[in-house]
Design a protein around this nucleic acid. Structure first.
Lengths: 200, 200, 200, 200
DNA sequence: AATGAATGAGGTTTCATTCAT
DNA sequence: AATGAATGAAACCTCATTCAT
C-alpha cells in the first residue's frame, strides 16, 4: 500500500527531487505523519515546533524538508490528492458495476478524509500555494475520475450531466462538514450526494 | 441601581445588549462591516488592527465592542444566521409553491454568502465560540426551516426524508466551494444540491 | 544642547513624521540611548531584546519605532551625522583662526565617536540602508564642512587641494582604529590626520 | 606518541601545522579562496554553508580544516599579514631610494587589499581571536616595517617621528574606506597618507 | 577524510490584547 | 467613550556546529 504511493511519487518527481538519503526519507515521512497528527489535534494553531517534537526531530530538520509552514501544509494536501488519484486508478482496473465502483471509491475516500481531520485544517488554512503545489495531482485525479464517469455514463448508471469536477466539488462540500459542527453528519451528507449522482 | 428597575425582559437579553448610544451603535456597525471587508480580502491573515484602520477607529474601540477576535468573528456568523432566519420567516409568509419558496430562499442566501466571502473565513477560523454564540439564531433558523420543509412535504414537493439540518449541511457544503478554488463553481454546486432536495 | 538637536530635527523632519505623543517620544529616545549602550558593550552580537530590556520597554515597542534591527542601527548613524552637522554649523559661527576652528571640531567629534563605540559597530554592520537613510544629514555635513574649508583656504591655513569629502574619509579612517586593536592609538592617528590637512 | 619524537621546531609551529596530504591541502586552499569570495559578496551575512558550496566541498570539510567560523576569518587575516610581511622583507632586499621603496610597498599592499574586500569584512567581523591568531605575523610585519623606516629615517626621507605601528594604523584607516561608501575614494586617502609620511 | 543531514539554541518579528492618556 | 502606544508571549525561521553515513 504505502509502496504503491512511493512508486507513483517516484514516477511523478519531476526536476529537483534527487532521491533522498535513507534516513532523510524516513525523517520526511515521520514529519508528514506528525504534521497530520498535530494539525488534527490543534487545528490551525498547531506549531512547527510541535510537529518537530512529535516527530522526534529538531525544528531545523522540518525546515530543511519544507521551507515554511505553508509548504508543509501544501505537501499534506498534495499527498492526499495523490492517494485519491492512485485509488481512482485502481478503481479503473476493478471489476464491478461502474456506478458501484465509483460509490465505493467515494465512500472510501470520505472515510479516509474523516479519519484525518488534520487535512481539513490544512486545506482551510493553506493559501494558494497548497493548490498550486498540488495541481499536477489534482489534474491527474480529475482525469481518472473523468474516465470512471465515462464508463458509468455508457452504462447509463450515472446522471448524464455529471462531470469529474462536480464530484470533486461535492466531496469538498462533504469534507467541509466533517469539522465538528453540532448536528452535522457527514455520512448523511455523503449519502445525499451519492444519491444525487445516480440516474433516476 | 439600574439593575433594580431592570425588567425580566432585559435580563433575558442578558447583560451586554442594552441600547447603545447612537454613535456607539454606528461604530459597532462600521466595525462589523470593516471586519467583513478585511476578512474577505486578507482571509485568515487579517488582523484586528486592519479592521480598526478600515473602520477608521482605534483598536481600543474594537475591543470595547467585542471582547476578543473570536467574539468579533462569532458576531459576524451570528448576524448571518439571524438574517437567514429572518428571511426564512418571511418565506413562511410568502405565497407560492412550497418547494419554489424554499428554492428561492436558498438561492438568495447563497448569493448573499458569495457576496461576503469574509464570512467564509470567519466560519472556517472561528473556534467553538462562534457556534455557541450563534446557537439561538441557528436554532431559530432550523425551526423555521423545519416548518418550510413540513409544508413542502405535505405538498409532496420535497424528498420526504429531508430534515432542516440536511439543508443547513448542504448549504454549508456549497459555501465551502465559494473560496477561490480553480475549477469550482458554487452555482453549479447549488443547482445540484437543490436537485437533491426534489422529489424524484 | 539637546534642545538644539531637537530643534534641528524638527526642521529636518520631512514627510511622514508627525509629532509623537510625549511618552512615545520619551520611549524613542530611551531606546536609542539603550541601543548605543548595548551595541557599545556587546558589539555586533547585541540583540534587540537586550536593547528593549535596557530601555525598560517591551520588544514590541522597539519594533513600533524601528521596523527592524537595521533601521535602528541606521537611526543611530543618522543621529551622529546630525550631531556632527550641527556642530559644524556652530563652528561656522565661531570666532577664531579658521584652521584652529576646524581642528577643534575634528578633535571634539573624534572624542564623541570614541566615547560611543556602539556607533562603530553600527556603521560596520549596518548595510546600505544606514547610509541611504542618513544621506540627507551626510550631505548637510559635507556642505557645511565645505564652507569651513573654504574659509581656511582663503586664509591660506589649509592644504589647498583638500575637499570636504577628504575630511570625512580621514575621520572615517581614524574611527576605524578606535575598535580595540592592540597597539593602535586613535589619538595619534587623529594627530597625523590633522597634520595632513595643514599647509606645509 | 608522535609527540615524543616531535622536534622543537615542530612544537614552535604548534600542533595543527603538520604537512597535509596533497588533496587536503588543495581543499584548504579552495576553502580559503571561497571564503574570500563569499565574504566579499555577502559581507557579514555570508554563511559557512555558502563557503562550502562555493568551494565544492561539504560543510564538514570546512570544519575539519577550521574549528569554527572565527578561526576561518582569522586565517584569512593571518594570510594577509603573512603576505604583507613577506613583501616587506622583499622590500628590505630591494635597491632604490628608501622612501620610494616604502611607498611602492604601501601602494602594492593597498591594491591587494582593495582587490579582496572579503578581508575587510573578515577584519571587521572577526573577534579578538583573529588578532590573537595572527599576532606572530603582525609582529613580524611591524618588525620588518621598523627596519624599512629606520633606513628611510637615516636617509632623512621620512618624517622622523613615524613609527611602524603608525603605518599599520594609517593603512588600516585607508582600508576602512574601501567598503562601498558613496563619495569615498581610497586611492586619494592613500595619497594623502603617503604624503604625510614624507619629510617636508 | 569527506559528506551533508540533523540539531536546537537563539534570533527577529508579529499581533492579540491591555492600559495610560 | 475613544485612542493608539505599549506589551510580551509565542510564532517563525536561521545558521554555526555536530555526527551518522
Amino acid at each position: 500500500m504505502t509502496d504503491a504511493v512511493t512508486t507513483s511519487e517516484t514516477q511523478i518527481r519531476s526536476e529537483a527531487e534527487r532521491p533522498l538519503r535513507a534516513d532523510a526519507r524516513r525523517n520526511r515521512e515521520r514529519i508528514l505523519d506528525s504534521a497530520r497528527a498535530v494539525f488534527a489535534q490543534y487545528g490551525a494553531d498547531a506549531q512547527i515546533d510541535d510537529v518537530a517534537l512529535h516527530a522526534g526531530v529538531g525544528v531545523g530538520t522540518v525546515y530543511r524538508h519544507f521551507p515554511n509552514k505553508d509548504a508543509l501544509l501544501a505537501e499534506l494536501v498534495r499527498q492526499k490528492f495523490r492517494l485519491f488519484a492512485d485509488r481512482a486508478r485502481e478503481a479503473l482496473e476493478a471489476d464491478g458495476e461502474p456506478f458501484e465502483v465509483i460509490e465505493a471509491l467515494l465512500r472510501r475516500n470520505a472515510a479516509t478524509a474523516a479519519a484525518d481531520v488534520g487535512i481539513q485544517y490544512a486545506m482551510a488554512n493553506a493559501g494558494e500555494q497548497a493548490w498550486t503545489q498540488a495541481q499536477a495531482e489534482q489534474e491527474e485525479l480529475i482525469a481518472v475520475t473523468g474516465q470512471l464517469i465515462e464508463r458509468a455514463r455508457r452504462a447509463g448508471a450515472i446522471r448524464p450531466d455529471i462531470e469529474a469536477i462536480d464530484i470533486g466539488m461535492l466531496m469538498c462540500g462533504v469534507c467541509s462538514t466533517m469539522l465538528p459542527r453540532p448536528g452535522f453528519d457527514w455520512r448523511r451528507h455523503l449519502d445525499l450526494a451519492i444519491d444525487m449522482l445516480r440516474t433516476r
